[in-house]
Write a protein that binds this DNA or RNA. Sequence first.
DNA 1: TAGATTGTTAATCGATTAACAATC
DNA 2: TAGATTGTTAATCGATTAACAATC
Lengths: 222, 222
Amino acid sequence: MPGNNIRNLQTVKPIPEPTLRRLPIYYQYLKKMCNEQKIEYISATQIGGDLNIIPIQVRKDLEITDAVGKPKLGYNVIELMYAIENFLGWNNTTEAFLVGAGNLGSALLGYNGFKEYGLNIIAAFDIDENKVGTTVEGKMIFNINKLTDMIRRMGIKIGIITTPPGNAQEVTDIMIDAGICAIWNFSHTKINVPTGVIVQHENLASSLVVLSKKLAMFLQAN
Amino acid sequence: MPGNNIRNLQTVKPIPEPTLRRLPIYYQYLKKMCNEQKIEYISATQIGGDLNIIPIQVRKDLEITDAVGKPKLGYNVIELMYAIENFLGWNNTTEAFLVGAGNLGSALLGYNGFKEYGLNIIAAFDIDENKVGTTVEGKMIFNINKLTDMIRRMGIKIGIITTPPGNAQEVTDIMIDAGICAIWNFSHTKINVPTGVIVQHENLASSLVVLSKKLAMFLQAN
DNA sequence: TAGATTGTTAATCGATTAACAATC
DNA sequence: TAGATTGTTAATCGATTAACAATC
């Protein structure tokens, strides 16, 4: 059936990363609008106006989620939020382990917002015996030597690294060996992984550079 | 003098943000190479090979810093690092204040690496009287009510926000009123600023979405 | 109906990638 | 010299923006 083939091709169509990054921003905005004001319908014009994104881009972004709007009215807020949730797979949460229960690790453990985005950090691991056995933000801290076994037993797929730079590669290797297939790297160093393993490196230096370059150009202009 | 005009036009030429984000990655890599192995010259081919970036892009990126390489040899590592430092303005460090000395704030205060990128967080502010007067990672914590005065007196231009979402806008307003012109926002909420003020929002939800979508597509394919 | 908004196709813009002469 | 690499110009690719018919 030709119609089916077209549909299959469409599902394979690549998702632009910039769009992907904007979707949670729309979602956060919609949730706010939903809670604070009881609005039933919202237009791309209004979303764009409030978020400083041109309306055409908002529509293009939302298109990918298969959200359907009504001409003149806009999108039904609840439906739109559901479309985003659905598209991003927030219906079924993924469980993750975090290694390195320092300040940064604790900050992440304490951020309950991740659950909303389908991520549940269920436990943390550390090398420091003083931390092992305690809880941070209600999450248990285990000895790092339990990591391999627990990843395997629980079938955990996502690992979060918040260790000092010197330990990041070692932790990475343990995680991958145990079956982790996606790593969120907050350590201030590059990690090497075999092809196929997904890495998201949160590089603060890159962000800082963008900020300070913009500032430098601004100060220069004034 | 026409030559001069062309030069002026060139300095105004916009810098692609992706390039800007990659420059510190090259720099981190070069520093590592410089310390671990005593290499004098390095080629775009080798840099690209190690960082998974195609060599043409490496050359294009480095071109913007006015770095000059030698055919057959590559770039002088020290010169290249200097060119990047110079282009990004890391020669003269900028001082910054941080507001919100929680786990995340403490993590940022403790990361000495920022100094290398031209940013020096010189003090922090908090509302919690138990924290005020203490130091975190050697940085003094002041009462939030001193913020306006100290920004003005010291002419601070960069503010970092690591408060809970509920306080972020209030802190933003105080900062801007006192003369801050660039804000690095780590709070889990959007902040509104007047046009002209630079905001860099570290949105973890966006990063998480990219990671988990990649994972979902990977798991689906296997 | 008139007007605002959606959905979709086309045009533009900018970043990435390719090609290749110049050079050490 | 031969071969690898740079520097620069051109081609490609993908995201953003524009245009406009369809629609409520």
